[in-house]
Computed example of a mutant assay.
Amino acid sequence: MRGLLYKDFQLILNKLSLKSRLLIILVLLLVTIFGRESGTIFLSIMGPISLASMPTGLLIADQESGWNRFVGVFPIPKKNIVL
Rank of each mutant, 00 (worst) to 15 (best):
P55W: 04
L5V: 10
F70N: 08
G35I: 03
I81D: 00
W67R: 04
G39V: 02
V73P: 00
G35F: 03
L22N: 04
M1G: 13
G72M: 00
T40C: 12
I12T: 10
L5M: 09
L29A: 11
I33V: 11
P77Y: 02
L11D: 13
L58V: 04
R2W: 15
G66H: 05
I41N: 10
I24R: 05
E37R: 04
R2Y: 15
V31G: 01
S50L: 12
A52F: 14
L11G: 00
V73C: 06
L18P: 01
G3V: 11
Q63S: 09
P75E: 03
L26E: 10
R2M: 12
S50Y: 14
G72E: 09
L29P: 00
F74Y: 15
T32Q: 10
R21A: 10
M54E: 08
K79H: 13
R21P: 00
G3S: 08
P77S: 09
I25S: 11
F34L: 11
L83K: 05
S53W: 15
G66K: 02
S50R: 02
I76S: 05
Q63G: 02
S20L: 09
P48C: 05
L5C: 08
F74N: 06
L59P: 00
F42K: 00
F74M: 09
P77Q: 09
G72R: 01
F74I: 10
L43H: 12
M54I: 13
N14S: 12
I12P: 01
D62V: 02
N14K: 07
I45D: 07
G57M: 05
R21M: 14
L58E: 03
S38A: 13
E64F: 07
F70L: 08
I33Q: 07
I12L: 11
L13V: 09
T40N: 13
G3L: 14
G47D: 02
I12F: 15
V31Y: 00
Q10I: 09
I41G: 02
I41T: 11
L30C: 10
M1N: 11
L11E: 12
V73T: 09
L4I: 07
F70P: 00
L11W: 14
L28W: 10
P75V: 01
L59V: 06
N80D: 15
I60M: 11
F42E: 01
S17F: 00
K15Q: 14
I25R: 03
L51H: 01
I60K: 08
V27F: 14
N80W: 15
V71A: 12
N14P: 00
L43T: 07
M1C: 07
D62I: 03
L28R: 01
G35H: 05
Q63K: 06
K79R: 06
M1E: 14
I45S: 05
G35L: 04
G3M: 05
S53H: 09
L83C: 04
E37L: 08
N68I: 13
Y6D: 14
L29H: 05
V27H: 03
Y6V: 10
N80E: 12
I12G: 01
L30Q: 05
L23C: 09
S38G: 01
R21S: 12
V31C: 12
L16S: 13
M54Y: 03
L29T: 06
T40W: 15
